[in-house]
């Protein structure tokens, strides 16, 4: 069972529909007891970093998620949900994140070093480059495009946590992860066949892990 963390921020409907298409049982809940029964979690998110952290803190999901990860259970953050995994965001001053991965979210500058203006948000289909092609999340997938919508970009402190990138005024971390904490900056649930393959890989990872625990 996959648990989709419902904390009022994000396109939960499309994530749950994607799991239905994959025939994966899931629960959609903000209740910690419900979520605790799951083998792996998905943390979706659309909107502002500060708003999301405020809600996670109010609902005491912040310490609970840290504990979940400390107990070595799998977690996948999507879009804003991925940025929340890092230490902080410069959105609205500075806001502390879940600090499960090293790095921070900063706004796209909107101008290249050469002074050329570019569009923010980074919106649309961009190509993935795998920096860790053997990682379980990207294994056996076609190389292709996925759908991004974001105005902030993660600067990871170490390239060890970057599994795939996309080029947009530099290398944008597109898939990140360490141990059993993962994130995708793009929306796999909106990324056609490749997106579904990547979600399927996460689910398989969760299931294999669960099987080996038993």
């Amino acid at each position: 069972m996959i648990g989709i963390v419902d904390y009022g921020m994000g396109n939960l409907h499309s994530v749950s529909k994607a799991l239905e298409r994959l025939n994966v049982p899931y629960v959609l809940s903000g209740d910690r007891e419900e979520l605790a029964k799951c083998a792996g979690l998905i943390l979706p998110g659309v909107g502002a970093f500060a708003d999301a952290m405020k809600i996670l803190n109010e609902r005491r999901l912040t310490p609970w998620l840290k504990r979940w990860v400390a107990d070595e259970k799998p977690l996948l953050g999507i879009c804003l949900g991925m940025q929340l995994l890092f230490e902080e965001s410069e959105e609205h001053g500075h806001t502390a994140g879940l600090s499960l991965l090293p790095g921070q979210a900063v706004r796209f500058r909107g101008k290249t070093r050469a002074g050329r203006r570019y569009k923010v948000p980074h919106m649309g289909w961009n190509k993935l480059n795998y920096t860790q092609p053997e990682h379980p999340l990207v294994r056996d997938t076609e190389r292709g495009h996925v759908y991004f919508v974001h105005s902030y970009v993660v600067e990871a402190t170490t390239s060890e946590v970057v599994i795939a990138t996309a080029e947009y005024d530099g290398d944008v971390p597109a898939i990140v992860g360490r141990n059993h904490v993962f994130g995708t900056q793009f929306h796999p649930e909106k990324s056609s066949h490749l997106g579904m393959q990547l979600l399927r890989n996460y689910v398989t990872y969760v299931q294999e892990r669960q099987a080996s625990d038993q």
Partner: peptide, 8 residues
């Protein structure tokens, strides 16, 4: 549509 479509 949202239930079947995997693009935005």
């Amino acid at each position: 549509v949202a239930g079947t479509l995997a693009i935005p």
